[in-house]
């Protein structure tokens, strides 16, 4: 890979049915680049969980993915309610999702822990009432 490759997506917060579209697109593009299936899967799952979170907790946002020589960076930015206690939100099983979200198959409180597990670095910046920016990187070995 010579040049840096970037993808930008608007993530619609109104429509749960379309949630995950950006992640599917990224996955298809990474496949085309011929990256290893393991790397592709880690990026996809981490991004998908983050994208779903933006839709169900933050009313949507934007996703930026940068493919660099040694790593892939995923930045998810929203202007939702923010996360007041990040340590608590990171715990497995912690969720403020509504029953409606649960009937749609999400809201088990595994998203953030999963994002951490599948990425090599993860940084959460969040301000209550302002929004959340999550930056994840996955190394390409």
């Amino acid at each position: 890979m010579n040049d840096e490759l970037v993808f930008h997506f608007d993530v619609d917060g109104e429509d749960f049915t379309s949630a995950g579209q950006a992640s599917v697109m990224v996955k298809k593009n990474l496949r085309r680049l011929g990256l290893s299936p393991e790397i592709i899967r880690r990026v996809s799952i981490a991004m998908y969980e983050g994208e779903i979170n933006m839709v169900i907790h933050a009313g949507g946002g934007v996703a930026d993915v940068k493919v660099m020589e040694d790593r892939i960076e995923i930045v998810l930015t929203d202007h939702g309610p923010g996360i007041s206690n990040i340590d608590m939100a990171m715990q497995e099983g912690f969720s403020t999702a509504t029953d409606t979200i649960r009937t749609l198959g999400f809201g088990a409180g595994m998203g953030l822990p999963n994002m951490k597990r599948y990425s090599d670095t993860m940084d959460i910046k969040s301000t209550v009432g302002v929004g959340t920016t999550i930056t994840m990187t996955v190394n390409i070995q």
Binding site: F16, S23, Y48, G105, A108, G111
Partner: peptide, 30 residues
């Protein structure tokens, strides 16, 4: 529960489910 599929599935190639929405297909794809 797609959350569980995303958290616990390793190399299972088949998903059986009673949940029907587009996220099921996207989760399977991921």
């Amino acid at each position: 529960l797609m959350s569980d599929v995303l958290a616990y599935v390793k190399d299972q190639a088949v998903l059986l489910t009673g949940l029907v929405n587009p996220q099921v297909i996207r989760t399977a794809e991921m």
